[in-house]
Structures are given as structure tokens and as C-alpha cells.
Design a protein around this nucleic acid. Structure first.
Lengths: 137, 137
DNA sequence: TGTCTTTTCAACTCATTGGTTGAAAAGACA
DNA sequence: TGTCTTTTCAACCAATGAGTTGAAAAGACA
């Protein structure tokens, strides 16, 4: 998926992988140990670890045959930043009762006109991506 | 995927959907307005909105033909809680230099023995899920 | 040397997903 | 009434993903 945020969210969308993160939060471990509590083949776990690794959530250091896996702290900051940004905004709008106001004066305010005329909502610095390239057959 | 956290993370793993969230953070909007900046068919956007909705990130209220979409605040708390929990733990372990210590005294500490003997790491209340049902052919 | 352990690689299956197109639903309005 | 606008539904397609099995790599160690 290439962009970091997508990789991290996708990595954590799987419950097995979240479990692995939870396990690694208590201590480093090697692949066999990580696989042990799951009813999945070791190769399956290895693949899960690979996606965690390429999302930057985990690093591996191999000595001899053993590979010890370590939970990485930095990437969490990226997520925290994104989540907090929009959580904050969603809550602000909730507390201000913007939507209720819009409901009361009918249809216009709740739809796009308020957005365009920038009344209450000074823009957030927009996320860089939109205008997804269309798949033309 | 049935469990809430998986749904939310999966929903946000797509850049188009994150863009939609970003757009909705500034104001409510209807489907057509939301679709406008993208090079994707309106039906495509409608599908994206459906996954955002079933993840609880968004609610729709339909009046007449128009459907206005609203960003929901609550679900963010769920994510924040999860992310902060492990971010905190990962950082704590980083600052304590647990891994460096483990590297120095050889192989034992870095692997599972430290986890079992609960030395430095008093357990986190473990995430409820593990023991994924195996797909036996 | 040969064997055992640990991990990864490769190829395969099946379900899901992101996108498309074409209708259909459902109200607004001339 | 008919038409126009807005959204969703249904069927389809190509690509990805989560899992499997079977080897292969690579060091430990008798």
C-alpha cells in the first residue's frame, strides 16, 4: 500500500497481529514463542510478523537460527497523531452541537454550504491525498 | 470482521476513506459532495461510506433523496485507548533499555524466560483474544 | 559428518475488497 | 403525469490477504 499510515492501520486490522503486538509489549520473543499460543502454523505467524515488520511496528534481529522480535515505539506516534487530530475535531464539533443547529434550520446548513462558506469551521490543514487515480479500463 | 477494533482499523487502512474522514472533520456533507473531489464513481464512494458506517466512524441521516453523512466521535476513543496503551508500553520498554540489557547478557533475557519470570515486566491486562480457531482442511 | 531446530520461501486455495457498470428506489418538481 | 436528482443495490472482475503444505537455508551439536 506504500503509504505508512495505511500500512500501520492495515497491520493492526487483524486480531492475530494485534495479539502479537500485545504479547510483544510485555517482552521481546522469538518466532516460535510467539506462535505457541495460536492455532496457526509457524509459517502463518512468520507471515504476520513480516507485515508487522514492514509496517514498522516490529523489528527482528536474528542470531543463529533464532530470530527475536522487538516491538518498536516510533510508529505509534504516527497513529496517535492522526487519531488524536480527528478525534479532537470530531469531539469539538460534537460539543459545539453543529449538527443539531444544522438540523434545526433545515437542510441547508448541514450540507456543503456551511463548509464552503467557512463559517464556523476554519479548515484543518488537509491531508495531502485525494484525487485518487481512476482505474480506466 | 465482527470485532470493533478490527473494523475501525480496517476502515482507516484505506487512504480514500481516511480522506473522507478528513473531509467530514470540517463539516457534514452528502454523498455527492463527498464524491466530488475523487476520481471514483459515486457508487464507489457509497461503498466506502458503508464500511465507514459499519465501523461506527460515520452516521448517515437521510432526508428526501439526500443523505447527509456525519463524523462520529465515540469510536475514536476506542482507538485512542488501544494505541495509547501500547505506545506507552513500547516507549516505557525503550526508555528502560530492556532490550539493550538483554543484548548484553546474551540470549536468555531477551527471549521468553524474562516474560515468564515476570522480572521487570508486570503483565499488561492481556487483550482478550488469542487461540484463533485453526482452519483444518 | 549427519541430524535436529528454527525460520523463511514458494506455490497453492479460498474469501474479501476496491473498483467498475447498469438498474432500481424514491422523492422533488415542471 | 413524466422527468430529473440522489443514492443504493446487484453482479461482476482483478488484486490482495490469510491461511495451508512442502522444501530449503542455516546454524547447533552429537
Amino acid at each position: 500500500m506504500s503509504d505508512p499510515l495505511s500500512d500501520v492501520f492495515a497491520a493492526l486490522a487483524d486480531p492475530t497481529r494485534r495479539s502479537l503486538v500485545a504479547r510483544l509489549a510485555v517482552s521481546d520473543a522469538n518466532v516460535g514463542q510467539l506462535a505457541e499460543p495460536f492455532d496457526i502454523s509457524i509459517q502463518g505467524i512468520s507471515k504476520h510478523l513480516k507485515v508487522l515488520e514492514s509496517a514498522g511496528l516490529v523489528t527482528k534481529t536474528r542470531d543463529a537460527q533464532r530470530t527475536t522480535v522487538h516491538l518498536e515505539a516510533q510508529v505509534f506516534d504516527l497513529m496517535t497523531k492522526w487519531v488524536e487530530r480527528y478525534r479532537h475535531e470530531a469531539e469539538r464539533r460534537y460539543q459545539r452541537l453543529d449538527s443539531v443547529l444544522a438540523d434545526m434550520d433545515g437542510s441547508a446548513a448541514r450540507s456543503g454550504s456551511a463548509a464552503r462558506s467557512g463559517s464556523a469551521s476554519r479548515d484543518l490543514p488537509p491531508e495531502p491525498q485525494a484525487r485518487t487515480t481512476k482505474r480506466k479500463p
